[in-house]
Design a protein around this nucleic acid. Structure first.
Lengths: 340, 340
DNA sequence: CACTTGTGCGCAATCGATTGCATAAACCGT
DNA sequence: ACGGTTTATGCAATCGATTGCGCACAAGTG
């Protein structure tokens, strides 16, 4: 078997003490050592094929070079690019990523954060916080660096990386208004999530700014950010407001639910009703009709989350703790100007 | 600060030796202990909020309860459900998952497997092997349990969980033939991957079985399993075989590339040309026209991969080492019978 | 030339849990 | 009642790397 080569073997090979090898291998503390020794250690380590034992290092130093991320669903097209971007940022700096999936059916969901902490992760990313979430409390209490991504908390107690959800929704509404629409309604996301609440606020703000004061009838809250939840929500909304000429959905999946509801009623998109989504997830440019939406770069959010978290861990962070990225409107064929 | 409570604290609390606590906490070796002691230990551990230090346990025991997975792209709709299913199977048994993304731009891709091994993972899942891949060699040499998923190796040296790619493609072709099509062509995937090669073989086999002997002109190999690669491949193929009435693509993204090529040429799907894909990824039921395809349950593959790997690790495995799942045909609107 | 200052490295304790072996107590049969 | 088992638990070494402390030896100072 490949007898695992330890720091001791390298030390014996070079003729120095293990502690010297340890120092020589760490770029930070290498400075205090003599140049020739460092070279010999490096050469020997390379030659013997030395790989540090992360477990041992972690045990002694308390640092694991591991980051944990908790997501509601790995396969969700919103979260998978976030994970991807995060992994990229982390691996570039020698960190690895543990992914934990917070499905509702999971026994004691709160255990997830505990589990990751028990694994001694150096930092944590939460992609699933609600506006009021005790997972954040637990991280705070555990003194562990944590960054929220995609969704933020009610009170901003911890750093976060999010899209400007209000602004994104305002872009969508303003675009419709500029196209002549006045009877605009909103399929909102769950109001327990920042994305649901802020997008709804953006809707209301943009409508008011145009002198259109939306009332409760103009908004229907969906049970989840899914196609399945979008359909009944859209049905209700369209029944209440048959005169609506445009529907703004809180995300793309909900917008696809709206498509289905319209189809059920025999109304056409965009001829009868314009629809606009949020996220610009893959393939929505190919659905029928191609969906107008608000584009968010989830991958970029993941990358910036990683950079922020690592800076926090190493204590080198400077700059804002609340990072907000700017979404852009992508107009496709599901929206059209209202004819006079 | 939350002074981390160790096994020693629990031992002191109960009035026993640390080793006793260690045994009491392990369901396997608990049997050999007295009932009352076990109870008191469990109670004390619970009360003090004891969390085992995985790093310490890993160092001593050599087991990390970590599994690594290497994927070509986390955000790919084929691989993200695999990761999701895998994570579910693993977490149910106390294992956590480290995800590593094997992007082409990565410096020294082979380091990924090494990196995971250096982190002392108990097992490895490779979702990105080519037919001839030295990553497998390295795992074999490192004596580490490994399972391939989605793609298999040329020589079956290691366990794998894959869809029956040949059979899936034959389903597609047979369906078209039964609908009256004869001039059927194939946009193949990269032949360096098992999915690309086996699906191509399935195409050839099904055609031959129907007495139609396809030649090289009927097949165009794409550079990658992407929409972008599908477009030029489809262009070439349709130029060579303008009389083709049906195109079978090696996966859904390639099929979407075929859509674009048809649109460029002003030909309609399915009126002029039927198209069929492979994978049944999310949203292909909503594109225009809804794509007929061969459905693979990637999530289930992920779950079975996890179960297999854990059985391998614990040495309790019995049964086949090559698991093959059966795909099903999903007929939608992109295919239609050929009118006599 | 003695004496302080500094540099480079060795020493040994330590992180927390696991495990082979030792041992004391309980139990058994005759 | 006693030797021989069996059973339950204690003991201490161990995994591999990190790190505070301290010791040489060299360089610098009066």
């Amino acid at each position: 078997m490949a007898a695992t080569v330890t720091i001791k073997d390298v030390a014996r090979e070079v003729g120095v003490h293990p502690s010297t090898v340890s120092r020589a291998l760490d770029p930070a503390r290498r400075e205090r050592l003599g140049e020739p020794v460092v070279q010999r250690v490096l050469e020997a380590a390379e030659r013997l094929g030395y790989r540090p034992d992360v477990a041992a290092a972690s045990l002694r130093s308390g640092r694991s070079k591991l980051i944990g991320i908790v997501v509601p669903d790995i396969a969700n097209p919103v979260f998978s690019p976030i994970i991807s971007g995060l992994e990229r940022a982390l691996s570039a700096r020698g960190y690895a990523l543990i992914v934990a999936d917070q499905r509702p059916d999971r026994t004691g969901g709160n255990d997830l954060v505990q589990m990751l902490i028990a694994r001694r992760v150096d930092g944590l990313v939460l992609a699933n916080v609600a506006l009021k979430d005790d997972a954040v409390e637990r991280c705070l209490k555990a003194q562990i660096p944590v960054v929220l991504v995609n969704r933020s908390e009610g009170e901003s107690r911890v750093p976060s990386v999010v899209s400007d959800d209000m602004a994104g929704m305002m872009l969508a509404v303003e675009y419709l208004i500029a196209s002549g629409h006045r009877n605009i309604v909103h399929v909102a996301g769950p109001q327990s999530l920042s994305t649901g609440m802020l997008r709804r606020r953006g809707f209301v703000a943009a409508m008011r700014a145009a002198g259109l004061d939306p009332d409760v009838d103009d908004i229907e809250e969906s049970a989840a950010f899914t196609r399945e939840a979008g359909l009944p929500a859209a049905r209700n909304l369209l029944a209440r407001r048959p005169d609506a000429t445009a529907v703004v959905a809180a995300n793309d999946l909900l917008a696809l639910g709206v498509y289905e509801a319209l189809r059920e009623q025999g109304r056409r998109c965009p001829e009868d009703v314009s629809v606009i989504g949020h996220n610009d997830m893959p393939l929505v440019d190919l659905v029928n009709p191609p969906l107008s939406t608000v584009r968010i770069s989830h991958r970029e959010m993941g990358e910036r989350t990683g950079a922020l978290l690592l800076d926090l861990i190493t204590g080198t962070h400077q700059g804002a703790l609340q990072i907000v990225t700017s979404p852009v409107l992508v107009a496709r064929a599901s929206t059209r100007p209202l004819e006079g």
